[in-house]
């Protein structure tokens, strides 16, 4: 049965959201047994698990509405880097602990706002996933927020390292608020989120935490995007070689 163009657009949208969650979930999972101490190790892996769960829900929805007989595993394991639609910030290496927290500081408030808006989507599955994920993202933000205070307002060393880490990742935050043609098409249909409209609230959440953490907001001197068009950093290919290895070597293998 041929899918309508509308369904293909929804599938593409869900693939983007699923790829964001999959790549970040993988990056966070790399902390497993490498966390700064046991409780924090567990925290990062719990957050990772939330993202992997979202990836499964989004990719499963994409596969269903696409109606071409693919499933969530085929989407996750058998697409090449240029077919991935995640935004660049999610594929960046985990870096040191400061870099991981700096990325979460950008991403968590974004997701709190994004899922609040996606809960109003006319697509009931997307709205349902958002209703579930919003609770998790609020919890994630609480965790990241406390780390920003501890690192920013901690020692001279921790202050400097979180500042450097924020600088490294800052130029990637713009892409989170960029509207593609697909976003605009589905926004008109009442399905997608108006990303640009989230920016003022995000700015105030970021400014609040940076001020509380005695940190200076990085300047907007550079920006990078392209993930939604399949144009990625070199890091994604390396990430996928690890993420996809077993299924590529032994297609269809199950635990």
């Amino acid at each position: 049965m041929a899918s309508s163009n509308h369904n293909l657009s929804i599938a593409q949208y869900a693939i983007g959201l699923g790829d964001d969650a999959l790549t970040l979930g993988h990056r966070l999972s790399e902390w497993c047994s490498h966390g700064p101490y046991l409780e924090e190790d567990i925290a990062l892996i719990n957050i990772s698990l939330d993202y992997i769960g979202r990836a499964r829900m989004f990719l499963d929805h994409a596969a269903t509405v696409e109606g071409e007989g693919r499933d969530e595993d085929q989407l996750a394991y058998f697409r090449d880097d240029r077919e991935f639609r995640n935004r660049l910030i999610f594929e960046l290496p985990r870096g040191d602990f400061a870099e991981t927290i700096a990325r979460q500081c950008i991403v968590d408030p974004f997701y709190v706002l994004f899922f609040e808006a996606l809960m109003q989507s006319k697509d009931p599955v997307l709205a349902g996933i958002a209703g579930k994920a919003i609770k998790e993202s609020r919890y994630h933000w609480k965790h990241t927020h406390s780390w920003m205070l501890r690192l920013g307002d901690g020692t001279a060393e921790s202050h400097q390292r979180i500042l450097t880490a924020l600088d490294e990742v800052w130029g990637y935050h713009f892409e989170l608020f960029e509207m593609t043609d697909l976003d605009r098409e589905l926004l008109d249909a009442g399905i997608a989120v108006d990303l640009a409209a989230l920016k003022p609230k995000w700015d105030s959440m970021i400014d609040e935490v940076l001020t509380a953490a005695t940190l200076t907001r990085p300047e907007d001197t550079w920006r990078q995007s392209g993930g939604r068009n399949g144009e990625h950093t070199e890091h994604l290919g390396h990430l996928l070689t690890e993420l996809q290895f077993i299924q590529r070597a032994h297609p269809g293998l199950q635990w």
Partner: peptide
């Protein structure tokens, strides 16, 4: 509170 995250996703320590 020791940690917001515990032995499973649904628990804190």
């Amino acid at each position: 509170l020791i940690s917001e995250f515990g032995s499973t996703a649904c628990k804190a320590m």
